[in-house]
Design a protein around this nucleic acid. Structure first.
Lengths: 340, 340
DNA sequence: ATAATTCATACAATCGATTGTATTGCATGT
DNA sequence: ACATGCAATACAATCGATTGTATGAATTAT
């Protein structure tokens, strides 16, 4: 077990060339003669030299690392997102540090501090549902490192966002239900402190209005949109009069409700149609297939990462930018047209 | 934008206390008087001091970071695995650097070099299907940093493994088919260069032998086990005589085949039963539900991480250890008992 | 009262690379 | 032949923390 000790100083010593020259040679500076470079590179190879990133980081005050904080890594959307992030970061020679907040604000705060401590060059974050104030991001203001909110946008003055157009997409999704003959549409809303869920509700409302359908407050049921919430809400909509469709702010809630309703003999979509949001992998496979909105998760990760690294390297300070990507309406059997 | 410059030297200067004492105080050393510690901590707080991890890393020659390389982050098993890794690492105050090989050996090599360059304190890796020689791990021998193979075990002399017992589990899965009355069982095998798929085939064979069923070479079909492979194999098994069940080395292949067969009017499980492997999320939702083997992915991540960090911190050098976790047989309708 | 011990802190080297400035030697122009 | 300029390399400071050793003061033992 040789201790892999070779440093530029070892090369320097064994060649009688100053370590500054060695450093420049290894970095391809044109201040070093080609012949000398060759010598140095050969010796480096020979000694199994490997640059000490920690020393470079300290001196350059950079880490070539970006931090990523998401609620849960194993949620499909975030796994896709991270896959996109990693791919782009790899291509641009950055490392990716990952952490999950587990949807806990307290943990998010800790992770944020961690990321600061670890001197990431930039941060990508998708905040928890609990995150409704942003004081804990203040520390970032004092750094010069950029921060981008993904999926759950914010404006805290010095950040960028990469999102989809939740309102417009929700309008389209609701419109699709209306186009297919559904009129009494319940909305499974998410926590209204979260911007994105507010927008989805707004899109739903806008669609109703656009089609001259009166908005009924009782038709909006708010929850955290877990599958279990969906199961509970199934009961509630059976007690409402005339409901013929549901637009859920995510797939999980829709799937939970569908499951419970099917058990009770309700036919989908004949009795009640369902439109989800997110395109979970299972949504394609349940019976009937769940119509939904597909978020371009991997693309969002890629876009966010190149935006972030662009900001890191331009250091143009306060580029604030909001990138809106298109979401795609996926039509399956849960919203089949009513053939009266 | 204050440049957040405070270092131990700033504290040292403004307090007239040597920086070494400041350092010790901030690290809670008992070589500093409590009263002095208080002073220092107060001043640190006041100056918004934040330890420079890069300097510490350089000096201590450690990063408190573990590297993770998996084929794809957005594959369910790996997302779960990583979630477990991150959680444990967080609790033990380690950071996690993530990279995906995209099942390319070439990329795996690059990532491995990257991880070395970044001086991770230890490495968790699940190798690609292409990885059948291990020369590129040699560089790790020269480091003193431990490496653990997860899910796809290896013995390269200086590593540990965290795996499930693929052979035994496969035996049980096959036995379950046999117990339910199936006798002519096809095996969808994975690439036989990969140990794990070799073991699954071995388990299948062992089950046959144990039950006095003759092994038929034609009943083993090898592929890379993508869903499309499953669809192709559906045709092949229809051309074989008497097939009444399939044991697939992963769920994807099983699902592909089931889909194609259903289209052709084959009844599952009445005509052909299916047993998968991995418990993909969709396996619960397809019709019929796919019986399968559930790998404890999150637990594997946790176990691997605490094992790894244990090795890092004990530095007991060459602890080689193989941890075998239990997989669980999940019985659904695709293997329903034959009621003659 | 003095030597021995302990306690609290200061001193100074170190980790390995980067980078602004200084120096040397050589070629070029006149 | 001599000043000028440039090419190539050397010198030395620096990034911010850690840590072994030295020092001085305070406490204890004898």
């Amino acid at each position: 077990m040789k201790n892999n000790k070779a440093t530029i100083h070892d090369i320097s010593r064994s060649l009688g060339i100053d370590s500054s020259t060695v450093s420049r040679a290894l970095n391809g500076s044109d201040r070093v003669k080609d012949k000398t470079k060759e010598l140095i590179n050969k010796k480096a190879e020979e000694l199994g030299y490997r640059k000490n990133i920690m020393a470079r980081n300290l001196r350059m005050n950079r880490t070539f690392t970006i931090g990523v904080i998401v609620p849960r890594i194993d949620r499909h959307f975030f796994a896709k997102l991270i896959a996109g992030i990693e791919e782009t970061a790899f291509n641009l020679n950055y490392e990716v540090i990952i952490a999950q907040s587990l949807d806990s604000l307290e943990r998010e705060k800790k992770l944020l501090a961690n990321m600061l401590n670890n001197r990431v060059d930039g941060l990508l974050i998708s905040t928890t549902m609990e995150t409704i104030s942003y004081d804990h991001f203040d520390a970032y203001k004092d750094e010069n490192s950029p921060i981008i909110f993904v999926d759950r946008p914010n404006k805290i003055g010095y950040n960028s966002n990469v999102i989809i157009n939740d309102q417009e997409t929700s309008l389209n999704a609701t419109q699709h239900l209306i186009d297919n003959g559904y009129k009494n549409i319940v909305h499974f809303a998410g926590p209204q402190e979260v911007d994105l869920y507010k927008l989805r509700l707004a899109g739903y409302k806008a669609a109703l209005e656009k089609n001259g359908i009166e908005f009924n407050e009782d038709y909006v049921i708010e929850s955290r949109l877990m599958q279990e919430d969906g199961e509970k809400m199934a009961k509630q909509i059976l007690e409402l009069p005339n409901v013929d469709a549901v637009f859920a702010a995510n797939d999980h809630a829709a799937i939970g409700a569908m499951k419970r309703l099917k058990e009770q003999g309700v036919k989908i979509p004949e009795d009640i149609a369902f439109m989800g949001f997110s395109d979970e992998p299972i949504s394609e496979y349940i019976e009937p297939g769940l119509s939904t909105v597909k978020q371009p998760a991997t693309l969002m990760g890629k876009e966010a990462t190149s935006l972030l690294i662009g900001q890191i390297e331009n250091k143009s300070g306060d580029i604030v930018h909001t990138k809106i990507l298109d979401a795609e309406l996926i039509v399956r059997n849960s919203t089949k047209k009513i053939t009266a």
